[in-house]
Design a protein around this nucleic acid. Structure first.
Lengths: 138, 138
DNA sequence: ATATTTGCAAATTATTTGCATAATT
DNA sequence: AATTATGCAAATAATTTGCAAATAT
């Protein structure tokens, strides 16, 4: 379980492992899709954490490389687990039903080599969104 | 000049071509990078358009397919011209200096075919971000 | 002349911050 | 016991809306 790894990392760096942090992280591990702070809050049992704490906790996890900001044109800034804590993947966003699926096959390696050769830009991470219509909506 | 095309489209659909719309669109055509509403406003001569009108105008252009929302983790929601009005491209975001470059070579076609074959998802548009270090910052 | 768009102010919504209290080490 | 994190309320920022006045057709 990599929640344990994250806990250790936080502790090593002088942070504390609180029930709020545990609960918020658990939301991201169970509901594996991009979530906004408000959505995270909604998924927590009432009284678990104030919205301000959700914001602070998300910021902490982003700084620690646990979460990454993600786009979702419909509802503000969302976050999800970084590649260090789940399989690398891309997003398929259906323009009709709004559903977001993950797609785990990635051929970006060659493109990244090409980018370095042509532009001198060293890619360390990428983030692909594919928009269209899902199987159900086609 | 495709500003002219856009003007005609707006007029045909019963909209009006105002100096604010012309000015805002011109900003996107001159400064070809993702811009937030506030940044667009800053680039307009004072008195050209109220910030509320910038928001309304951007929304209109997004509905008409002229602009597309773009991510930029640093400063809120940004927009730029859609592929219909400029060359298709991807973004290279330097994590050190913050600069955003365009990269115009795209091999996504094959990947999109694969996505359809495997997932039944029909991709109509994609949006790729590459994060890393630019040539100057390496 | 008519319908649409704008500015301005006010209303919402999203996000951040200060500080006393509570919880973790 | 010392330090860090939390809740709550208040501050700030971002975005939207109503409506009368202005502008485009």
């Amino acid at each position: 379980m990599s929640i344990e790894k994250i806990r250790e990392k936080i502790l090593e760096e002088g942070g504390r492992w609180t029930s709020a942090r545990q609960a918020i992280l658990t939301v991201f591990f169970s509901d594996r899709k991009p979530l906004s702070p408000a959505e995270v809050r909604k998924r927590l049992a009432k009284g678990t954490a104030d919205l301000a704490s959700v914001y602070r906790t998300i910021r902490l996890f982003v700084e620690k490389g646990v979460l990454v900001p993600m786009v979702q044109t419909t509802e503000g800034q969302c976050y999800e687990l970084s590649d260090d804590y789940r399989e690398h993947h891309h997003h398929l966003l259906c323009g009709k039903c709004g559903q977001i699926q993950d797609y785990e096959d990635c051929q970006a390696g060659d493109v990244e080599k090409l980018i370095f050769k042509r532009m001198g830009f060293r890619v360390t991470r990428h983030d692909f969104q594919f928009y269209g219509l899902c199987a159900d909506c086609l």
